[in-house]
Design a binder for these strands. Sequence first.
DNA 1: ACGTTATCCTGGTGGC
DNA 2: TGCCACCAGGATAACG
Length: 303
Amino acid sequence: MPELPEVETVRTAMENQMQGLLIRKVIISDKRMRWPIPENLPERITGGVIMGVRRRAKYLLIDITSKSGNRQEQPKDEEAKKTKDWCLLLHLGMSGSVRIYPPDHHPPQPQKHDHLIIWAGQDQNHDHAGASTIMVLNDPRRFGGAQLILRQDQDQHPLLRTLGAEPLGNQWNGAALMTAIKGRKTSIKAALLDQQVVSGIGNIYASEALYQAGISPKRQAGNISTARIETLTGAVKDVLRRAIAAGGTSLRDHVQPGGEIGYFVQKLHVYGREGETCHQCKTPIKMIRQSGRSSFYCPQCQR
DNA sequence: ACGTTATCCTGGTGGC
DNA sequence: TGCCACCAGGATAACG
């Protein structure tokens, strides 16, 4: 469900409210997700400090230091002596969301489809639950997941290794996209959804960016002029930036960590607007199915 | 190698 | 009201 702008919105909230806090308690309330949440996750990160929260594509990466300072036992082998700085990797799949409760604003009880709950606070000694900030990962469909990876291994991690460029990165431009889709026979819409071509774009923003660029989703990816691909990269960046500024797109149930909705839904030009008129030319918006996903476009404005 | 389809899940909606 | 088919913001194994 959440694409780059929604994940980025979650990242910001997480960093604002959790950075610098020490993890006091971790509960796996339902380990069944895309991959089972590892049983030893709580023991590995409890006592660690949240150093920051990053985003790569649609993955959240929570940097957690090892429990430093007062290690009880000495490491027995070389492997154990290495610093174990962890990276808690979260993915929200189609229906995942994160809720963050500030101290003394706690929920009465866990909710349906909560999978992972983390309590974190200012210091280790003051450990009554009321002073903790609580982060909850909820995911009804369980297409998302939570994994723990060593920070030093993150670049080689199978989930992150093959990802394409970040669309908002300075180095991502028309030339970069051109190279990534050279010779590809698939549609430009499918190419934008391919996380190895460019990462973080999902079904909403692929349709919106193609509308803004005036390119039909049916165009063969490898057969579009350099100039139009340049326009497309600009449109992708613009759509993503505006969506982040609006707090993402809230369809159905998606909300930000504090329960706020994202307002970009009001700015959508084509997604979910089948049969409604184009904001530019009044032609009815069409919906087609490409690679099993819905695409929305204006048959007049997009060629 | 590449492109498309099937599949993993739950929940909401709309038709009958 | 119930029942059922179909749809959904993603990723990937399996298939042609």
